[in-house]
Design a protein around this nucleic acid. Structure first.
Length: 564
RNA sequence: UCGGGGAUCGUCUAAUGGUAGGACUGCGGAUUCUGAUUCCGCCUAUCAAGGUUCGAAUCCUUGUCCCCGAACCA
């Protein structure tokens, strides 16, 4: 059988798509494909979730099926409404639409309870009154079989009564638990009579105080899948040995269908931390400013940083789906981001660390507005007007008093092209009392003006610039990788993952400027500062001062060469 | 001394008994009014040992290494 039999487009093959194709050819589920993305609302979504989102929504779309968004909110202790709303926003931002199919496991609490009663009646579940410690002890370990709870033989009637009273709130947390009656000698510890309901007197963000017993993941997830008519329940590798339990529960119950659980490997990147627990620690510890801090690998952080949903989706496609524990090189992420930004971002000029330049042969007070294309290779995509006057700012890094080998930029006596203008020569270097270079005096060769007779004259370097009189002050936030270590989670004895934090993951630059065309740029606007980096306007911007986040730098082969 | 998974270029992945391919990275070069982009080229892989076969990454055997699992978390 070929993988491409049914696949509409040239998507790269993967084992899950193969399975779905097989199932359809075998006529399973009437050929329907229904998947679900089931986050627990206890944190923000991150790039790892993007993979699951792409897989679940992508597989459904590919086979004209549907994908549900279901919040797995069975643990009131950790879940909050704030997370629910943030997750919905992030899923939408990534470009996925669940339509009518928004669900909450908590919507099924009543049904889940009824199925549990059925399980008890069938003699497949019992109320256990061992303490948590005792249950753990009775469970055994990898090398020893478990032993049966003394409460395992309780009668159906007694179990029914106790379970009803658990629900009624007659017992304190931990007094009883409902357990599936399976096999205490099973090699798979998940099958050793796992608890499926616990007593928890806690306020739930949706059901309030209606319930004081809550279903456990292993019980709630498979039944929720069945209730919704899910056909393929995709989850990560660590649930592989939960699958027998998933199947066991559904086999005992008279549920509408029996979905197939399929496991795939989580997404990991070098230099990126994706543990929810640790991300929460960064937020709570103040190492970052919040879940949407642009240094965070959360979808909201990446959005604010300037990453695009297209880039992330494309990344997921490139990464593929398999069962290997893989660590993707972060450069692949960076490549995906640059690739999309390169195709879509308007080119503008911004100067991070200004150095004053006076064009000595330019008349005092004269201003010329230059029509400059946003995309040099395709002027049809639009132009903006850029003012040129006698006093300019150029990038301090574009001047060296003593030129080194391979230096194409400005130095005393050297010529360089001013982007969209023409060739200038540096005639004089002005220093302050401390010997710091504070100004350059240059002459512009009028014959080399863009569009002029000698505009084709070659010089090695082209630099960006701004008219000092028109330059708009901005705050630039230069972001870099949050961690210095390739595997931030690997810490030696006594170490902590925060030890690996890059202290320069954020550098705030005051005194930077951009061209006046950006005066009205709204938050979320993405542009390329030519020769520097891609930037995105931050929501912190005010009418007086815009804040630009550096999304990612342009590749810089000069810096690389210089570093050698 | 258990159960469940996994081993293909540096990295992520394809090849489903028939030419080990792609992408990213790296390294060269060309073009360039962005040292960007684009284009071209190069480097580099089947965990090991046996076996089956005309032919093995793929099938069999035996090893080795790695990951996950003992919450009233998900």
């Amino acid at each position: 059988m070929s993988h491409t039999d049914e696949t509409p487009n040239d998507l790269p093959p993967n084992f899950i798509r193969d399975r779905i194709v097989e199932d359809r050819q075998a006529g399973k589920n009437g050929g329907r494909v229904v998947t679900r993305f089931p986050p627990e609302p206890n944190g923000y979504l991150h790039v790892g979730h993007a993979k699951s989102l792409c897989l679940n929504f992508g597989s459904a779309a590919e086979f004209a099926g549907r994908c549900h968004l279901r919040f797995d909110d069975t643990n009131p202790a950790t879940e909050e409404l704030e997370y629910v709303e943030a997750i919905k926003a992030d899923v939408r931002w990534l470009g996925f639409d669940w339509g009518e199919h928004l669900f909450f496991a908590s919507d099924y609490f009543e049904q889940l309870y009824a199925y549990a009663v059925a399980l008890i009646k069938a003699g497949k579940a019992y109320v256990c009154s061992l303490s948590a410690d005792q249950i753990k002890e009775y469970r055994g370990d990898f090398h020893h079989k478990g032993k049966e709870s003394p409460y395992r033989g309780r009668s159906v009637d007694e179990n029914l009564d106790l379970f009803a009273r658990m629900r009624a709130g007659e017992f304190a947390d931990g007094e009883h638990v409902l357990r599936a009656k399976i096999d205490m000698a099973a090699g798979n510890i998940n099958m050793r009579d796992p608890p499926i309901y616990r007593i928890k007197h806690a306020h739930h963000h949706r059901t309030g105080d209606k319930w004081c017993i809550y279903p456990m993941y292993d019980y709630a997830h498979c039944v929720s899948d069945a209730i919704e008519g899910i056909t393929h329940s995709l989850c990560t590798l660590e649930f592989e040995d939960h699958r027998p339990l998933y199947d066991w529960i559904l086999d005992q119950l008279d549920v509408p269908c029996h979905p197939q659980q399929i496991e795939f490997a989580k997404l990991n990147f070098t230099y990126i931390m994706l543990s929810k627990r640790r991300l929460l620690e960064l937020v709570r510890g103040g190492q970052v400013k919040g879940w949407d801090d642009p240094r965070m690998p959360t979808l909201s952080g990446m959005r604010r940083r300037g990453y695009t949903p297209e880039a992330l989706r494309n990344l997921c496609e490139r990464v593929g789906v398999s069962k290997h524990n893989s660590v993707v090189d972060v450069t692949l992420l960076e490549h995906a981001v640059r690739e999309h930004l390169n195709a879509t971002s308007r080119r503008v000029m911004g100067v991070l660390r200004p150095l004053r330049v006076v064009l000595s042969n330019w008349p005092e007070g004269q201003v010329e507005w230059i029509d400059a294309p946003y995309f040099a290779d395709d002027p049809a995509r639009g132009t903006r007007r850029v003012p040129l006057g006698r006093e300019l700012f150029i990038e301090h890094d574009d001047f060296k008093e003593v030129a080194v080998k391979g230096w194409f930029r400005l130095s005393p006596g050297a010529e360089v092209r001013l982007r969209h203008v023409g060739i200038v020569r540096c005639d004089e270097v002005v220093k302050d009392a401390a010997g710091e270079v504070v100004e350059l005096r240059c002459t512009l060769d009028p014959a080399t003006r863009s569009g002029g007779p000698q505009s084709g004259r070659k010089v090695k370097g082209t630099i960006h610039w701004l008219s000092a009189a028109h330059a708009l002050p901005i705050e630039a936030r230069l972001y870099d990788r949050l961690f210095l270590s390739e595997s931030p989670g690997d810490v030696g004895p006594g170490g902590h993952f925060t030890d690996n934090i890059n202290p320069r993951a954020l550098e705030v630059v005051h005194g930077a400027f951009v061209e006046p065309s950006l005066a009205d740029a709204v938050p979320g606007t993405r542009v390329q500062f030519e020769r520097l980096a891609y930037f995105c306007v931050d929501p912190d911007s005010t009418t007086e001062l815009r804040v630009f986040n550096r999304t990612i730098g342009l590749r810089d082969s000069w810096a690389k060469q210089e570093g050698k």
